[in-house]
């Protein structure tokens, strides 16, 4: 009986350790967001969007006005179908302004299981991390 209890406890230990280390290890860049509304359902890794990389090249208004991205994480439903029709990411990732959507691995780089939200050291809550 005693041994059984020990086994149950030990089985939980690795899971607890992984959770602990996993959460402590996230120190993503400020403004990095995870998009996983549909990715993993479709068998792909979650998408990581890096604000810092894009804001060096484009003003906020290009994506948040011209391309109609909402200013709330995950509020815009983006599918690969729309992207290949030149909407959202596809407006630039078309082989003319930026590389094409054939480079799946460059966007779908997230660790499996991440949820749609801001991951990069945010300090304010609410709409942005819905």
């Amino acid at each position: 009986m005693q041994a059984t209890i020990h086994i149950t406890k030990l089985r939980l230990l690795p899971v607890a350790m992984l959770l602990l280390v996993g959460s402590a290890a996230v120190r993503a860049e400020f403004g990095d967001i995870v998009l996983n509304n549909v990715s993993e359902q479709q068998g792909m890794r979650p998408v990581i969007f890096q604000h810092w990389f894009h804001r060096i090249r484009f003003q906020c208004r290009v994506c948040h006005n011209e391309l109609k991205f909402e200013m709330r994480v995950g509020a815009t439903q983006v599918t690969m179908d729309q992207i290949s029709q030149g909407r959202f990411c596809g407006a630039c990732h078309n082989g003319e302004i930026a590389w094409t959507v054939e480079n799946c691995d460059l966007c779908h780089t997230g660790k499996p299981g991440l949820t749609t939200k801001i991951q990069g050291g945010h300090e304010t809550k609410g709409p942005g991390i819905w």
């Binding site: 779908h108 780089t109 997230g110 660790k111 991440l114 991951q119």
Partner: peptide, 13 residues
Amino acid sequence: DGIHDPGSIGTQG
């Protein structure tokens, strides 16, 4: 950084 999958080829690039 804890969110990118280091095992993905894309992450390295």
